[in-house]
Design a binder for these strands. Structure first.
Lengths: 189, 189
DNA sequence: TCAAACTTTCAGAAATTACTGAAAATTGGA
DNA sequence: TCCAATTTTCAGTAATTTCTGAAAGTTTGA
């Protein structure tokens, strides 16, 4: 690996972090490299920069494409494939959240739905089912909320985040407001 | 493994999912088992239920304790250690979020802070640094927001989540309200 | 159609991670 | 204090994952 020190430490860090996340070292390093690169890179550029094998690079790029975290492009007059990451860090964040949702959350929800529909054969199973249901409700709620947030435009999102815990106050305020003004209120939920 | 089918499939699923997450099979299975169990279990109960070795169980429990995802308790007149998960799924969720923050996000923030303070030695480094800064800002923002949300009480949190994208409208409403009423407004940010 | 340029696949090697059993350490009570 | 019950550690082994080089596949343009 022969990179400017600043970039090198970034790339190495992502390599290490990869294992804490669900990706391998090479995938992490390549992503990091593309993220900070000021121009698209081809596979040989990457081999040169990271110091891994050509085939490993190919595999890693395939995985990054499956995650939709890198985009492929062609440069005029060059047959090789060039890779880069999207510019918008928010978009990257959203993509990551969507993919993780699809790969890690959906299968669990499916399993839980199935389990919850079974007829329990004992007290232990009845209790287990109740617990699974709690988990299911929580995941569904958080998931929906996340999806809603994901679909906001960047500006709103950024404002929302900067408000931080203020959100809580705004909500309380709005709720008391609507309680005052609405007629059909009564009990929700 | 000799468990009621409903519980068994839950436990096995968590074992598989573990690898997508950062934990190994045994850790995932033990957590799942404790989560649905209607009473605390000791290490031998777990060995019996899961079918792994005693030592592996000991390791896995240590890891789960490090994540603060299981609690240790003693039963009167029994010297063995019994384990269970917290009852409150929200609390579990918060713990998980806090631990991941500490283990996966903080180190990255530290690295980024360091890199951003360096003096770039080339255009490539200058560009890399700008990208790192974008990433840093994003992570900081999301992190703070999450922390704010984590510290809300369960009821508010649940209401907030159920509102979903309504939040967006509430915010816009509140913002136009404050724009009308406040004097010193001008430009924020 | 062919050849050159480039990419992907895949079997096996290397590295890493998970698991086990035996032994050591700890704990609580007699 | 000592003993028995229980937990932890750890070195070696098993399983899994990652990585490589060689070979096969694909694409483009002459």
């Amino acid at each position: 690996m022969n990179l400017p020190p600043l970039i090198q430490s970034f790339v190495l860090h992502f390599g290490e972090m990869g294992s804490h996340w669900g990706i391998n070292r090479t995938v992490g390093q390549i992503y990091a490299l593309l993220y900070v690169s000021d121009k698209p890179l081809n596979a040989d550029d990457i081999v040169e920069a990271i110091g891994c094998s050509r085939s490993n690079t190919s595999m890693a790029l395939k995985e990054l494409q499956a995650w939709r975290l890198v985009k492929l492009q062609h440069l005029p007059g060059d047959r090789r494939e060039y890779f880069s990451t999207p510019d918008d860090v928010w978009a990257i964040f959203k993509t990551l959240a969507e993919e993780r949702q699809k790969r890690e959350v959906e299968p669990t929800l499916t399993m839980l739905r199935g389990a919850i529909l079974e007829t329990p054969g004992s007290d232990a199973e009845r209790h287990a089912q109740a617990r699974m249901n709690e988990m299911y409700q929580l995941i569904e709620l958080v998931t929906k909320w996340f999806a809603d947030i994901r679909d906001m435009d960047v500006d709103t999102l950024q404002k929302l985040m900067k408000l931080g815990s203020q959100v809580q106050k705004v909500l309380q305020f709005t709720q008391s407001l609507s309680r005052l003004t609405s007629r059909d209120s009564g009990k929700e939920e």
